[in-house]
Amino acid sequence: MSHTTKLLKTFFFSCVVILAGCDQSGASGSSAGNIRGYNHVASQHVNWFTVDGYRATLSGNTCCVMIPDKWRPGLTVHIEWEIDPNPREKIPMRKEGAGYDQKAYAQHKAKYIKYSADVPIPEYENSAGMSVHFLPCQKVKVYAGIASYGADTYPIKEPTNMEEPATCPK
């Protein structure tokens, strides 16, 4: 056996040993999953939101957020979001050209409100991403399991198009 062949075999064996040592299939890691948002409040629009800093909108799945492969007690996510409290307000269009009148749009945008909350993640066995539900009174619920919204096994049962109460409980 040549010296080069011995070096290649030694190198190959060393790589296998190193890679085997890196196998953490039994370790507590995280995996990427899509983010999906649901607005349950009829009188507002969620402009955008973040899950632990990963930005998303309500327009379908957004990639991605890191979710622990195994649930553990005390697991939470930090949610930030911005709402338009009057999404049906008519904003005048410019007389010439396309788009909104900039002054009117700036006045409308000044009414946007930002919120944040640390939200507990309910227990899950397998994750299929993170669903975020925006409820009245700036309440938020999340789900990280594999059931689809509306399924019998989906734990969040609040209806869509809920009304914001005149006063929110503290």
Rank of each mutant, 00 (worst) to 15 (best):
S2L: 12
T5A: 15
T5P: 03
F11I: 12
F13I: 08
F13Q: 09
S14I: 08
C15T: 11
L19A: 06
A20Y: 07
A20E: 10
Q24D: 08
Q24Y: 07
A27P: 02
N39P: 08
F49V: 01
D52K: 02
R55A: 15
T57H: 05
N61K: 11
V65Q: 09
I67A: 14
D69F: 03
G74R: 09
L75K: 10
V77C: 11
I83M: 15
D84F: 01
D84L: 03
P85K: 10
N86K: 02
E89M: 05
E89W: 05
R94Y: 09
A98V: 13
G99S: 07
D101G: 12
K103I: 14
A104L: 06
A104N: 02
Q107C: 07
Q107V: 11
K114H: 15
D118V: 09
I121K: 00
I121F: 06
I121Y: 00
P122Y: 06
Y124N: 01
Y124I: 06
N126I: 10
G129M: 10
M130D: 09
S131G: 10
L135I: 04
G145Q: 12
I146N: 02
I156S: 14
K157R: 04
N161S: 14
E163I: 06
E163W: 00
T167C: 05
C168V: 04
